[in-house]
């Protein structure tokens, strides 16, 4: 979605237009939910975080800086909420990585589910800073520059964090035999 479109919708949201807010919700619900899901490894928690994110967005339109891009704002809120949620549920410690069951049948769906579960298990073994950049890069498809905007860190740091994260993730996946 273009920045102009986002801006128009946000202007309408600030004026209390619920339909405009629902349009933003339609656009961002799935990526926000998936961001939270990858950070938290729980659909229930991701659902709650997604709900919190959109309520915060709705309540704080007044403080949104229009010079910033909306996506960087909403994903930053999503990541912060996810990290806060992890703290609440005492999941900050990396989880033990267990070998992923091999696919029991030829069904593509099962393979896809196993791939997703295996990658998710590996993701949960790395620190949240690293997990964050992997999620932004690989599951949301952001560029270095966009990740830099979302995390408010220099691009150079984005690169070094991402490259380290990949190495750690590769090691984790290797331990499960997935890579």
């Amino acid at each position: 979605m273009s920045r102009t479109d986002d801006t128009k919708l946000i202007e309408r949201c600030i004026e209390g237009d619920r339909q405009a807010f629902e349009s933003l919700l339609v656009l961002y619900e799935k990526p926000v939910f998936n961001t939270a899901l990858r950070m938290l490894n729980s659909r229930d928690d991701a659902r709650d975080v997604t709900q919190t994110v959109f309520l915060k967005v709705f309540e704080n339109f007044g403080s949104f800086d229009p010079s910033r891009r909306f996506f960087s704002w909403i994903y930053r809120i999503t990541l912060n909420e996810s990290i806060t949620w992890l703290g609440k549920s005492k999941r900050l410690e990396p989880l033990q990585l267990e070998a992923v069951d091999e696919a029991k049948g030829p069904e593509q769906e099962l393979q896809s589910a196993n791939l997703s579960a295996g990658v998710q298990a590996a993701l949960m073994t790395i620190k949240t800073d690293y997990r964050t950049v992997i999620v932004l890069k690989h599951f949301l498809g952001f560029s270095y520059s966009e990740i830099s905007q979302i995390l408010e860190i220099p691009e150079k740091k984005v690169k070094s964090r991402l490259y380290s994260a990949r190495q750690l993730l590769k090691d984790a996946l290797t331990r499960t035999g997935m890579h």
Binding site: E22, K30, R43, R47, H179
Partner: peptide
């Protein structure tokens, strides 16, 4: 390639 093959999940239908 492995990471890019992970499919996005659908949110719960009633979430919106």
């Amino acid at each position: 390639s492995t990471l890019d093959r992970v499919e996005a999940e659908e949110p719960p239908p009633h979430l919106r």
